[in-house]
Amino acid sequence: MNDRRWWLFPPIAWLLVFLALPVAVTASKAFSAAGVEALASPTTWRLVGVSTLVAAVTTAACLVAGYPVAWCISRMPERRRRWVLFLVVLPFWANLLVRTYALMTMLRPFSVLDTWFAAVFGLWHGWLPFMVLPLYNAIEKLPPRLAEAAADLGAGPAQVFFKVIVPATMPGIVAGCVLVFIPVLGAFATPEMLGGAQAFMAGSRIQLAFLSGRNPEAGAAMTLVLTAITLLLLWGYRRVHRSEGLL
């Protein structure tokens, strides 16, 4: 059934022209004189550091908030479980910009807009479903008596959680963290709208470089750095997480 592989030709060709080629052209721009200058500049790396920190904080907040939620949902009766999962996932499909705008409206009276806090809160709000779903999938697969067995063998509640439950659900934790960290690293609209000038991340730098038209090479350099970090993370992720499906 080798002829089946012919199906792949059109989509792969499309992705080579409109994904691989653009990334390659961007990389070549990043290695132009102005691009290399930006790559060598401490400002670029400070922004990469800030974005990485924001992404790490957001990911941690999503993990802490999302784990009990995923746990709780997996222990619900079947019918209610589907409804609550739907409530968690639905905002993810709803327009991110509209949701960010809704947060702007909600946060306005508290006068925390245009701060890092608002930006991270918005990112947490936006990407929490990405964390809950893989966690839920991992927790749901746990044998229901696993915790009981560990407790019978003398483990305290904290030991049960950190020595048994957490390692057993590690694939879900890793998947959730990757799925939140990557998009937040390159976030642009949310920090721009909620964090204002204070929450200036890599995405805003890229936007400024291209749309002000002053230094697209510097923007290409920043884009290349984000691409490299993403590909590295995905490569590591695929090494530890081998799934039978596409994701």
Partner: peptide
């Protein structure tokens, strides 16, 4: 694995990377 990786890549990379790369192209 390579083909599946390429096909699912647009879901995984940050939006801004895809957007800017296409803009540059």
């Amino acid at each position: 694995r390579v083909a599946a990786g390429l096909v699912t890549l647009p879901v995984m990379i940050p939006d801004i990377v895809l957007a800017i790369s296409l803009l540059v192209l």
